[in-house]
Simulated scan of single mutants.
Amino acid sequence: MKNQWILFFSGIVAVKVSGNGIERLINKCIRSGIYIWNVKRHGTHAVTLKIGLQDVHKLRHAARDSDCKIEFLRRSGVPFLLKRLMKNGGFLAGAILFLFIIFILSNMVWGIEIKGANPATEYKIRKELDKMGVKVGQLQFFINNVEGIQSELTNQIDEITWVGVELKGTTYSLKVVEKNEPKKPKQVDRQNLVAKKKAVIVDMFVEEGQPMVEVNQHVKKGQLLVSGVIGKEGETKEVPAKGKVYGETWYKTEVELPLETTFQVFNGKEKRKHYLKLGKWQVPIWGFGKLEFNQYETEVNEKKVRFLKWQIPISYTEKTFREREKVERSYSKKEAVNIAKEMARKDIKSHLSEDAIIKGENVLQQSFENGKVKLSIHFQIIENIAVGQPIIQGDSE
Results as ranks from 00 to 15, higher is better:
residue 237 K to E: 15
residue 238 E to P: 14
residue 239 V to G: 09
residue 240 P to M: 11
residue 243 G to P: 13
residue 245 V to S: 08
residue 246 Y to L: 06
residue 248 E to G: 00
residue 250 W to A: 01
residue 250 W to N: 04
residue 251 Y to P: 03
residue 252 K to G: 10
residue 254 E to T: 09
residue 259 L to R: 00
residue 262 T to E: 11
residue 263 F to M: 11
residue 265 V to N: 10
residue 268 G to H: 14
residue 269 K to C: 14
residue 270 E to R: 15
residue 274 H to K: 15
residue 275 Y to I: 06
residue 276 L to Q: 03
residue 279 G to L: 13
residue 279 G to C: 11
residue 283 V to E: 07
residue 284 P to Y: 00
residue 288 F to L: 03
residue 288 F to Y: 11
residue 292 E to K: 10
residue 292 E to I: 05
residue 293 F to S: 03
residue 297 E to C: 05
residue 298 T to Q: 11
residue 302 E to G: 05
residue 305 V to H: 08
residue 305 V to W: 11
residue 306 R to Y: 14
residue 307 F to I: 06
residue 307 F to K: 02
residue 308 L to M: 11
residue 309 K to F: 01
residue 310 W to V: 07
residue 310 W to L: 10
residue 311 Q to S: 07
residue 315 S to G: 05
residue 316 Y to R: 13
residue 316 Y to S: 14
residue 317 T to C: 09
residue 323 E to I: 05
residue 324 R to A: 07
residue 324 R to Y: 07
residue 324 R to I: 05
residue 326 K to H: 05
residue 328 E to M: 06
residue 328 E to Y: 01
residue 329 R to Y: 11
residue 337 V to G: 02
residue 338 N to A: 08
residue 339 I to W: 00
residue 342 E to Q: 15
residue 342 E to Y: 15
residue 349 K to F: 11
residue 349 K to C: 07
residue 350 S to F: 13
residue 351 H to D: 10
residue 354 E to W: 10
